[in-house]
Amino acid sequence: MGSLRGRVAIITGAGRGIGREHALLFAGEGASVVVNDVGGGNDGTGSDSGPAQDVADEITAAGGTAVADGSDVADWRGAGALVDRAVAEFGRLDVLVNNAGILRDAFIAGMDEEQWDSVLGVHLKGHFAMLRHAAGHWKQRSKQGEDVRAAVINTASASGTFLPNPGQANYGAAKAGIAALTQVAAAELDRYGVRVNAIAPIARTRLTLATPGMGALFDEEPDEGEFDAFSPANIAPLVAHLAAEDCPFTGRVFSVQGGAIAELAGWHDVRTAQVDGPWTVRDVERELAAWA
């Protein structure tokens, strides 16, 4: 216990599901937690301060330290206000867990602009907006001579990394972008003492239960006393480790589900064709014939 003692963390989308488990475990490990959640529906519509406040209350009732926040991470000013809130409440920010997300599934031929923009807005822009404002805070502290030891944990997905899911072009594109953003941010922010990693979790949440073709997989819960391989609580220990001050990892993407953690690799060469001199269409046709 206490691996996060003294750390100050923002966890977005922490009112329910995976984010809630992060917040509870972080507080149990000694972190002061800003529990952020707009409290909207699966599709991002509406708002409700209740879920975030309930989690913050649960933490404080157990002797931990937490405040609830309803800022919208997809809003540039809202993201900035959330970072400012952490600093105002606890004096600084050490950990950012980007977890907030929504779903507006549709096949490409029927997807409208709003379905695309809203999902990219919450996931990809929301990750970047939070990362940008947090990075500004850490850069300032580093420039002032402080030994910053901060951590960011982003949330990618199997959809968009290793398991493309039809009907989720918006979600998959956002999640693939988050994996790439993670690696770029890790390379850029190391100079300020910031590590950046991502997870691709598989667990039972409101979003996975609402995903076409996947609901049945997650819907069945195990008998009492049996290990629940799809419990969102299985995700939080990896995130807590990645948030710890002495964790060595940065620029990594980890898949996590049940009792399994795997490191994911990005795009890489699987075969190569080469000619001496410039390509012609016929050269390409000939050299790539065996790849079909």
Rank of each mutant, 00 (worst) to 15 (best):
G126Q: 09
A289G: 05
A200T: 09
L189W: 14
G167Y: 04
V97L: 04
A180M: 11
N99T: 06
A23Y: 02
T60V: 15
D84C: 00
A169K: 00
F128C: 13
D276Y: 08
L120G: 00
R104L: 02
I153V: 15
F90M: 08
G145E: 09
P51I: 11
P237H: 07
W291N: 11
E29K: 02
W138C: 08
G213L: 12
A109T: 10
T208Y: 14
A273L: 03
K125R: 13
P166W: 10
E188K: 04
G136E: 02
G41P: 04
I18F: 02
G258P: 08
G126I: 11
S47N: 06
G30S: 12
E58Y: 05
H137V: 05
D105S: 07
W291H: 12
A151D: 10
G17I: 01
L131E: 10
D283H: 15
F128Y: 14
L163M: 07
N234M: 11
A56C: 15
Q53N: 15
G78E: 10
H137Q: 10
P232Q: 13
D117G: 04
L82I: 11
G136H: 03
P166S: 13
I11E: 09
G44Q: 06
R252P: 12
V38Q: 15
T280Y: 09
P248I: 07
Y171E: 06
E287K: 05
L124P: 01
Q140G: 04
E188T: 06
S231V: 05
L4W: 11
A290S: 15
G19N: 10
A289P: 08
Q257P: 03
V194N: 06
A81Y: 04
V34H: 06
I199V: 09
W138V: 03
H241C: 06
L82D: 12
F107E: 00
G50L: 09
I11C: 13
T155K: 00
G13I: 13
W279S: 03
G17S: 03
A23R: 01
N42C: 10
G121S: 12
F254G: 06
L163G: 03
G19S: 09
A135F: 03
G258F: 15
S159R: 03
W116K: 00
S3W: 10
